[in-house]
Simulated assay, not measured.
Amino acid sequence: MRIALGVEYDGSRFCGWQTQKNGERTVQEVVERALSSVADQDVQVFAAGRTDTGVHAIQQVIHFDTIAVRPMHGWVMGANIKLPKDVSILWAKEVPQAFHARFSARARTYRYLILNRRSRPALMARRATWIHRPLDAQLMHRSGQALLGKQDFTSYRTVHCQAKSPIRTLHSLSVERHDDFLVMEVHADGFLHHMVRNIAGVLIAVGSGDRPPDWAAEVLAHRDRRLGGMTAAADGLYFYRVDYDPQYKIPAIPQDSGLLWNL
């Protein structure tokens, strides 16, 4: 059978999602090890998106195939016993063979969390990006609207990005302030390597007054990463949601997903 899982993780102490040849600690590695133990056979998982070093997930969606028969709650509880405390399986459900965590995805959503105050964080260290200079969230929001639609995001991806095409469709982008926190949410058909962090870097420069409001559009038009400004830190980036055809009945984001996620 094919089983889909929802996975939550704190990426602070992981070298990203994907298993590394050099043996670095990754989320995929620990999840596959835990599921293999429950299945009593090797399990290979496929994810909706690959997150980088230090990036978190509110609900990553993965799938795997197995001949092992377990109740769905058995996969959840059994894996969680084996997993480290910074990774948790949220749910499990059987899905059709046509379902693929990555290729069946219609769109993905990331959220970028900024703590905007003069004093550095303690409780939110490695879970939010700290910017001590005042940021204008409304200005950042307006600037980001220039990125909507089907665009060439060459300027917003790392030079090491392996995607064949830089064309992506950005469905929505918002920046909102909630007291000392700013939340940037981006929703697109797909993302390029470092795309969200590079967008955040440009908008932070706009919000702090270092760059004019039309700079996000100018960077896009250049189609040159060297003119794209800084890449924002991974600390504040969260893989938030994946959209699938309703027929698959993928569970919604849990309502207790933590600070600000229900705003």
Rank of each mutant, 00 (worst) to 15 (best):
V95C: 05
G190E: 08
A125G: 13
A188R: 00
Q97I: 08
H100N: 13
S36L: 14
P121A: 11
A232Y: 03
R142D: 14
Y244T: 03
Q255R: 04
A57Q: 06
K93Y: 06
G228P: 05
L148P: 01
A200N: 05
A4K: 03
T231D: 11
R117V: 07
K82E: 13
V206F: 02
E176C: 05
D224A: 05
I131H: 07
H171M: 06
L113P: 03
G78I: 07
M72E: 04
D40F: 04
H187C: 12
G74Y: 06
E176L: 04
I89R: 03
T26M: 15
G78E: 08
G149S: 03
E24Y: 15
R33N: 13
V45M: 01
L220H: 06
H178A: 08
A221E: 12
R111H: 08
G11Q: 11
D224T: 02
R133C: 02
D10W: 07
H141T: 00
D136N: 15
S12L: 03
Q97H: 15
E218W: 10
A98V: 08
V55F: 07
G201V: 00
M77W: 14
W75A: 02
A252N: 12
G149C: 04
A252Y: 08
D256G: 01
E8G: 01
V159I: 15
L182C: 00
K249I: 05
F99I: 05
P96S: 14
A79C: 11
T169S: 04
A205T: 07
S88H: 12
D224F: 06
R25M: 10
